[in-house]
Design a protein around this nucleic acid. Sequence first.
DNA 1: TTGTAAGCGTTATCAT
DNA 2: ATGATAACGCTTACAA
Lengths: 339, 339
Amino acid sequence: MQPTTGAPGSSATRRPTVKDVAREAGVGVGTVSRVLNAQGAVSADSRSRVLAAVASLEYVRDTAARELRRGASASVGLLVEDVADPFYSQLHRSVESTLERHDLTLLAASSGGSSSQVRRIVDGLAARRVEGLVVTMPMDADESRLASMQRDGVHVVFVDRPAVTFEADSVRTDSRLGARLGIEHLLSRGHRRIAVLLDDARNHTSGERMAGVHDAIQGAGLGPDAVVLSQEAPDADAIGARLAHLFASDAPPTAVFTGNNRTTVAMLRASRALGVRLDAVGFDDLELADLLDPPLTVVAQDPAAIGAIAAQMLVDRLAGHEGAARLHLVAPSLVVRAP
Amino acid sequence: MQPTTGAPGSSATRRPTVKDVAREAGVGVGTVSRVLNAQGAVSADSRSRVLAAVASLEYVRDTAARELRRGASASVGLLVEDVADPFYSQLHRSVESTLERHDLTLLAASSGGSSSQVRRIVDGLAARRVEGLVVTMPMDADESRLASMQRDGVHVVFVDRPAVTFEADSVRTDSRLGARLGIEHLLSRGHRRIAVLLDDARNHTSGERMAGVHDAIQGAGLGPDAVVLSQEAPDADAIGARLAHLFASDAPPTAVFTGNNRTTVAMLRASRALGVRLDAVGFDDLELADLLDPPLTVVAQDPAAIGAIAAQMLVDRLAGHEGAARLHLVAPSLVVRAP
DNA sequence: TTGTAAGCGTTATCAT
DNA sequence: ATGATAACGCTTACAA
């Protein structure tokens, strides 16, 4: 007689299950499972018959059923602001290839910086029972969900920005060092009045870069007027206006340091428009920076290294590594491009 | 007495299930499910009690169990060559946001152009019962697996490159048009001997671009010696050597057309090294192309449009759209950047 | 409107 | 070494 439940998926041909494989191979489902998972003792004969059946039926095991039964998913989630941003896409690639070596699946998503998207994505990852999480949270997003997942045994690593409300592993560029290197470079070229264009001050990395700027001028024994500071969102028009204003002042800067990619590009366009030829250093590398006139010196981050380290931290935790939350700062490098 | 099976996931606190929610709300599991899926009639009273229980227990439904029972996954797979490549990362982002609007989850992976990776990734997506697939296959990868998935009702859309062994929906740039626009631009600027540096001839798009070049010179009533053609993999050294050779010849070209991003960049570096100042057009836009000297005119593709169209095709198919495989060519645009 | 129970495909236990 | 079977958490048909 028919069971009380109808078949949900009524596609063309029903996909084969372990039962089908078992029947085809003339063994029990237990044996099939043991072969598929390479665990438990199975006779060479049974093994080869199972393998043959798998091949002839084109069997692929159902991940949902496997995860349900095992209670774990062998997958980790990645939450970034925007995969289309080169920094994050390189990070993504690097996380993916590190995890792949450990047979972990990556589930990635972009938040676009929106808190509601973050919530949706994190819930989705939780529902998929990810075993770990690599996350970049937008500035004022709610971290409580991540904290409770962490309590439930999900390992979480923050990249690019630190966790603010709880303790978690963290990997990011040493922004303070990077800013210091950039400013020191300009000072070494004789500049004594440098325009510094940083991101929104609420941003964590922006604060770090600020500190690095001060490290540099103090290290050189200079006063605070060695830099002219401006912190605002990297809007092209605003940057242009700011630059025009600075260069029209009584004591115009002779060089400029920009705190992120978008600001750098806006600055380059604006200075071109203003007809000024600036000595500049940008935070973040740009593809054609060497072909600009003058060539652009940059403080280069290493998103691939950040991703690899974050993924490795997760792998270690999954392998049972205990211990306090770790912070790994990745050193940026000054790429000098002289005219 | 104890059941014969031990609890697999032995994490800190057992996660709540529908049963817990039902108990907490004082209803049956059926009612909980009906509330969660907003289907079937539920009294306002029951509904609010269930919702309250869900909130207080922080319940999130288990995707694996849901997918297993429903036999479908509400997810689609994306296979690209490399997420770190801006073309693919923009495509990825666009596919993701289109799917998100239809409550579909995106599972993305990079093949790195390796056939074995393609196999591994496609098998993984099949095991997850994706309902659709957006794929870019490497040149000589085996498509048979995709074909059989298609027969089993999984909708597949090829992006950037066509399917070669079976019929499937397809979205890509109109490369032939793009190449024609690029060459026509150079011809309009008076060039009558143009170096054309295309990718490996086995590549589908390379062939299309070749045809576009011929369209342009024939349209202008010119002979085949209006272009000097070279097709090879975009290796920086090789491009440099090729360029040096061309410009040392008896009838050196006066302009150059490059068929892809990597070739363009290699060409720009090489021409800088050679000290020649070329009139050039590149296929694919580059971030700082407008700030180069001379500024670089490009034929720009629209990866976001390609992704959005591909995702929409999938959504339509999932909504029941039947019919023959469709090809959608996205028109590239000539971005003229005059000095 | 609601509760009960079957069953999705897998893994793991237990008895053989 | 192997087969039978319970259970993972969910949805849904059916009975009430």
